[in-house]
């Protein structure tokens, strides 16, 4: 792969798609999936920059991000389950306690 910057284009596109998903979707499971998308897009850009700059720190960062993503999804899904238990729904619309 001689043009690693092309990867950045893919990364940006996927990131923005993930962002749109986070904003548009109300189903918390899909929101979490979109967050995974965004994290992956960042990972890709890390690896691409690692290649561009001839360093390995990007790849190691990607490794850490993966760990964080795993922890995040575990806690996030735990939250969804807890919310589903109390509100009987997984829609972010239903969580309006912030307003009052």
């Amino acid at each position: 792969m001689n043009d690693p910057w092309l990867m950045l284009i893919v990364s940006c596109t996927v990131f923005v798609i993930g962002l749109i998903g986070v904003i548009f979707r109300k189903n918390l499971l899909v929101v979490l999936m979109s967050i995974e998308l965004m994290l992956n897009a960042v990972n890709l850009s890390f690896v691409a920059f690692s290649k561009i700059h001839h360093v390995l720190d990007g790849q190691i960062n990607a490794l850490f991000v993966m760990t964080v993503a795993a922890a995040e999804s575990a806690v996030g899904l735990g939250l969804v389950i807890a919310m589903f238990r109390t509100l009987k729904t997984a829609d972010s619309d239903q969580i309006q306690m912030l307003r009052d």
Binding site: F24, K26, S92, D93, Q96, L98, R99
Partner: peptide, 14 residues
């Protein structure tokens, strides 16, 4: 602006 919807907050954040 204070609609209570996470999505709108996110939009504003973006």
């Amino acid at each position: 602006f204070q609609v209570g919807s996470v999505q709108v907050y996110l939009m504003m954040m973006v």
